[in-house]
Design a protein around this nucleic acid. Structure first.
Lengths: 242, 242
DNA sequence: AGAATTAGTTAGAGGCTATCACGAAGCGTA
DNA sequence: TACGCTTCGTGATAGCCTCTAACTAATTCT
């Protein structure tokens, strides 16, 4: 679907071929991950599946780690594209659109979600270009968190009346958050309230998605989508004052 | 520390020895997991580390999967003990104590947390006794969510005034949650509002902990503990009416 | 057409899980 | 105490895996 490599440059026929093989390797890798998880990814199995024997894949990827890193990169890119599309859908697209897009994206391929937000391997450090994409995503989230709700909360009938209750812990966090926007999204100047809402948005929705995709809601007969919608509404109910 | 096996029965000297070896294996396994993650756990390495050669460990565990399952079981047990201790600390111990205990427990050994709440391996299904412990934990959480706050929120100065704003998504979830308590905690009859708060508590705190332990807050210079406290306060601010 | 680059092969080292058959302890009991 | 049964630990082996090295074959460039 997302042929990220097929159309890179593609000048000489060798590069074309190379890019195509790389893309097919990644495709098989994604299938394997979707069915058995990232830990069960086997270069050998992919090679055999493609009709060539073992070490041939090392012409295309330096090793298993590089392949997985590439998949992580693609996952981040895919999420960024999804966010971009959601932001472009409406002029003043806000958190609701992002939330919808995030959930759809996560449900589309749970293991891809876990490749980004799942259990980290202690030694691993993502390369800079990947953290850069993560920063882009954070920037889009911040933009949405800064934009006021169009006409009150979209999927909600609540009038945002309860905005004044400030707890001490919130103020403590907000002072910590003061003037921190510069480090996050490439020079994004954001007030603490926006950072705070962006963080709450991120952590709350991730909390639900993570537990849902991992199957922790399985026994209990309720609809995680409703919980997601309720939390989103609660988030939107405390909208920016203007 | 948590010698779950050392003191099981211990009648004949053989059983004593066996239990002790099993405990040492698990100890080494925990060390390995803490430093390299669960996917890097190697029976062979543990055996070599204990001075015996490879297949000897199969006398004590049927295989790698059984050892990991046992570690997961111990992790759930440890969390249950932690919750129990937090609940027993004060007579009307509520969500605040549970939240504190959960965070301390998670930070104490992140990989142990991820063993429960991390990336699931697609094929795996936890045995019934493990899901039973998970149910116990849910029950304790529900108890805390049902208990009214002692004298207003503990770590907060907020007066819980904003309780009346009901969004449509919330009511949709609450009708879905109606009369669901029976399935969860062994016959626990809980109103929808309590279930809802328990779920919000769980998912929000897990969302923060998961991202924090995975290092997703690393670049951004704020204190995750403050975010945790702020979210907890927000949770407690919408306390039960009585 | 010849030279240089690249693709893919087999062989092999070293790691892992897991099974099997065998010796070597230990334990309960006659 | 001495016998027999049970259990522990061993080496050997099969079958995976990652990854390196040397070699062949195909393709592209000059």
């Amino acid at each position: 679907m997302a042929d990220t490599d097929t159309d890179t440059g593609a000048k000489t026929p060798r590069e074309r071929y190379r890019a195509q093989v790389r893309a097919e390797i990644k495709e098989r890798a994604w299938e394997q991950i979707a069915t058995a998880g990232a830990s069960a990814l086997s270069l050998n199995a992919i090679a055999k599946q493609m009709g060539m024997s073992g070490p041939a894949l090392y012409r295309y990827f330096a090793g298993r780690d590089e392949l997985i890193t590439e998949l992580i990169r693609d996952a981040y890119r895919s999420l960024a594209d999804t966010f971009r599309a959601a932001s472009a859908s409406a002029p003043g697209a806000g958190l609701a659109e992002l939330a919808r897009a995030l959930r759809d994206w996560a449900l589309e391929d749970p293991q891809r979600y876990f490749l980004i937000y799942g259990t980290p391997v202690p030694g691993y450090h993502a390369p800079d270009d990947i953290t850069a994409i993560a920063g882009e995503n954070m920037a889009m989230l911040l933009d949405a968190a800064a934009a006021p709700a169009p006409d009150g909360p979209v999927t909600s009938t609540a009038t945002s009346t309860a905005t004044s209750a400030m707890t001490s812990a919130t103020t403590a966090l907000d002072t910590d958050l003061e003037g921190l926007g510069r480090q996050w999204a490439d020079g994004h100047p954001a007030p603490a309230a926006h950072l705070h809402r962006a963080l709450a948005f991120w952590t709350r929705l991730h909390g639900i998605l993570s537990l849902e995709l991992a199957g922790h809601f399985n026994g209990m007969g309720f609809d995680p989508g409703l919980l997601y919608a309720a939390e989103l509404d609660d988030l939107l109910a405390h909208s920016p004052p203007h």
